[in-house]
């Protein structure tokens, strides 16, 4: 019974993924290229960076990178809080 349920779930997920893979956009042809074309045409003149990915990550979308830095900080805070162990005066 349990094995049949697992197998059915596997078949369902595999069929879903294969269906999605068949309907992907062709590689290199995004569905809404207006923003991409703007970045490729203007980022070198506006930010002076040859690497367009870095220009987007740190300049156009710098606020997103700040959020990512906050996520990393929170993760480190959690790990340190859990694994810190007792302090010297708490033993």
């Amino acid at each position: 019974m349990k094995k049949a349920a697992v197998f059915a779930a596997f078949v369902f997920v595999a069929a879903f993924l294969l269906f999605a893979a068949g309907r992907l956009h062709p590689f290199g042809e995004p569905s809404a290229p207006a923003m991409d074309d703007y970045f490729l045409a203007h980022s070198q003149a506006e930010t002076g960076a040859n690497n367009v990915v870095t220009a987007i990550v740190f300049d156009y979308r710098g606020f997103d990178t700040l959020g990512e830095a906050t996520v990393l900080f929170a993760a480190i805070l959690g790990v340190v809080a859990v694994f810190r162990g007792p302090r010297e005066d708490e033993r």
């Binding site: 070198q44 003149a45 002076g48 960076a49 040859n50 690497n51 870095t54 220009a55 740190f58 300049d59």
Partner: peptide, 19 residues
């Protein structure tokens, strides 16, 4: 603060401002 020309990577290290 050096400006870079449009096109393929020109490899100017002294560019990109605060990046």
């Amino acid at each position: 603060g050096a400006a870079v020309p449009f096109g393929p990577n020109s490899g100017i290290l002294n560019s990109a401002g605060t990046l």
